[in-house]
């Protein structure tokens, strides 16, 4: 059962968010306050468990439990566990979640227009990458949102959308960040790393969680701000420059543009083609140049670097 006293309080997250504000490379002027307000629900409830099967499953349970009580789960609710017994990556890939890592999931009410909710996975990747960089690791984002250091994965993100039978929808954003955990199963040894493995320092997980949740609050708030701008600029039909504050942020953190890659929906099992990454478009799609010189933009799937 969750503990009575919050493992991390909302006030701590908001304090961190305000303290970080000076370092933000985001829109200027009164926009900052609006972005903070949009993102403020992140971590309004933080439920901490010593051990769970999966944080996403617990969130699903909380959504259904709230509905059974004729209420709704607070948007921004976070479930954190010290270790997971049933963790997994996308498809049937393994994800090792022992003690020492930061394993959490966030429920975010689906109030964004589809064009903008598609940007949430990018926002989560940005938040994770900013967090690891703030902690001294030179992480980078591989499209869509894998955070790695020198090709070894530091953080993995799962994004799902769930709907209750009465139509209430939540985005469930799961994050696994390797913090102090150093031992990985043999199949992951070459592909994974942790903050501690990279720097040799031991991190206080609560502090890492507060920092990460503050970055999530900012970047998710930024997605809402982009939507506000898009609507003000003429509606939802064309994302265009409205999404620039988020897309530019992603570009600064990503090492994907310019890389030669293999692309596939499940690129490990079914690689589809090879290409060179040109850029991402205003909607987050990956623009690639194929070997015959033609351009292709993908809005789903994943890549692996070949160079």
């Amino acid at each position: 059962m969750p503990q009575d006293k919050p493992w991390v309080s909302h006030a701590e997250i908001m304090d961190r968010l305000r303290a970080d504000a000076a370092g933000h490379c985001g829109p200027a002027g009164g926009a900052e306050e609006r972005i903070r307000r949009y993102g403020a629900p992140v971590g309004c409830v933080v439920e901490h468990h010593p051990r769970l099967d999966r944080c996403m499953l617990r969130l699903r349970h909380l959504v259904h439990r709230a509905r059974a009580r004729n209420t709704t789960l607070a948007s921004g609710t976070v479930v954190v566990a010290d270790s997971l017994s049933g963790s997994s990556g996308r498809f049937d890939r393994s994800w090792h979640a022992p003690e020492g890592g930061l394993w959490l999931a966030l429920a975010w009410a689906d109030t964004l227009l589809p064009r903008y909710s598609a940007l949430l996975p990018l926002a989560v990747g940005i938040a994770c990458c900013e967090t690891v960089r703030a902690l001294g690791v030179d992480g980078a984002i591989r499209w869509v949102n894998d955070v790695h250091a020198d090709g070894r994965k530091l953080a993995g993100i799962l994004s799902e959308t769930m709907a209750t039978p009465d139509g209430e929808r939540f985005h469930l954003l799961g994050i696994g960040l390797n913090v102090n955990n150093m031992d990985f199963p043999p199949e992951l040894t070459a592909a994974a790393t942790s903050l501690r493995a990279e720097t040799g320092c031991r991190y206080e997980r609560r502090a890492v969680a507060i920092r990460l949740l503050a970055r999530l609050a900012w970047n998710i708030g930024l997605v809402h701000y982009c939507e506000e701008r898009g609507l003000a600029e003429g509606g939802a039909a064309v994302a265009g420059p409205a999404t620039a504050p988020l897309i530019d942020r992603w570009r600064r953190l990503s090492d994907s543009p310019g890389r030669r890659v293999v692309y596939g929906y499940d690129v490990v099992k079914t690689p589809l083609y090879r290409a060179r990454v040109e850029d991402i478009d205003p909607e987050g799609g990956l623009r690639m140049v194929l070997d015959d010189g033609s351009l292709l933009t993908e809005y789903s799937g994943e890549i692996r670097y070949l160079d």
């Binding site: 598609a118 940007l119 949430l120 993100i157 039978p165």
Partner: peptide, 18 residues
Amino acid sequence: PGDEIITMSLMKRDTPVY
């Protein structure tokens, strides 16, 4: 009606379609 029949995948976000 109400059956989860399809998964929509967009930007690594999977959404069940009913």
